[in-house]
């Protein structure tokens, strides 16, 4: 454990809690892509199956369980409890365009051709693109509430900090997880445009982030 990884995990947790509380307190999931949240729930489910096969640390186990619970709680808020506020018309990204290539790639490029490893690889690839329905939705509607942009900021910051973690681990431990690193770079690139808008519009202005 190093400071980059710990702060990355904290940012990830903060992002998920921000989104959950935003929906819970406003009793509305307007502007939130249910598809992205479903994909994240799928990411956690397929990645954390090793909860049943390997014990790494109490921290690792607790965080995995918390992420899983919060992911499914968020999905259930969007699709059940506050379904009336869900804007399914704007959430029109075709997720099969992500799922099919990601599934194919995880069969082709993995560390070990076993069910658990393929699912882990699938989760890493899927995570790198899971935010696209949300970004697509913002592009389509042309705006996002500032609380939604804070969520995206922390979510983007999390994988960016993991990049620093991987550099650190490579130098300190000789540890290099090629699949995670390449996917993490791809994932971070998707946030670059958003980061720019976040700093120039949300933090300097107030209220919603509107696109030009």
């Amino acid at each position: 454990m190093n400071i980059f990884r710990l702060s990355g995990d904290v940012c990830h947790l903060v992002a998920i809690i921000i989104l959950f509380l935003k929906i819970w307190r406003s009793k509305s999931c307007a502007g939130i892509s249910g598809k992205s949240q479903l994909l994240f729930a799928l990411v956690f489910t397929t990645r954390y199956l090793d909860l049943f096969t390997a014990f790494i640390s109490i921290y690792n186990t607790v965080m995995k369980v918390v992420f899983l619970v919060l992911a499914y709680a968020t999905v259930s808020l969007i699709y059940f409890r506050f379904r009336k506020s869900y804007d399914s018309e704007s959430d029109s990204f075709r997720v099969e365009f992500l799922l099919v290539p990601v599934a194919g790639l995880s069969f082709l490029e993995n560390y070990s051709f076993t069910p658990l490893e393929i699912l882990w690889t699938f989760s890493i690839y899927l995570e790198s693109v899971a935010i696209l329905p949300q970004l697509f939705m913002i592009t389509k509607t042309g705006e996002a509430e500032s609380i939604t942009t804070h969520y995206l900021f922390f979510l983007g910051l999390y994988r960016t900090l993991y990049l620093a973690n991987w550099v650190w681990r490579y130098h300190e431990e000789g540890f290099f997880d090629q699949i995670a690193v390449v996917s993490g770079v791809v994932q971070t690139i998707f946030y670059c445009d958003f980061f720019y808008l976040y700093f120039t519009r949300v933090l300097r202005g107030s209220g919603k982030m509107t696109l030009p």
Partner: peptide, 10 residues
Amino acid sequence: EYDVYGHDEL
């Protein structure tokens, strides 16, 4: 060192 039986990162 890669361990196929578990991943220590989240």
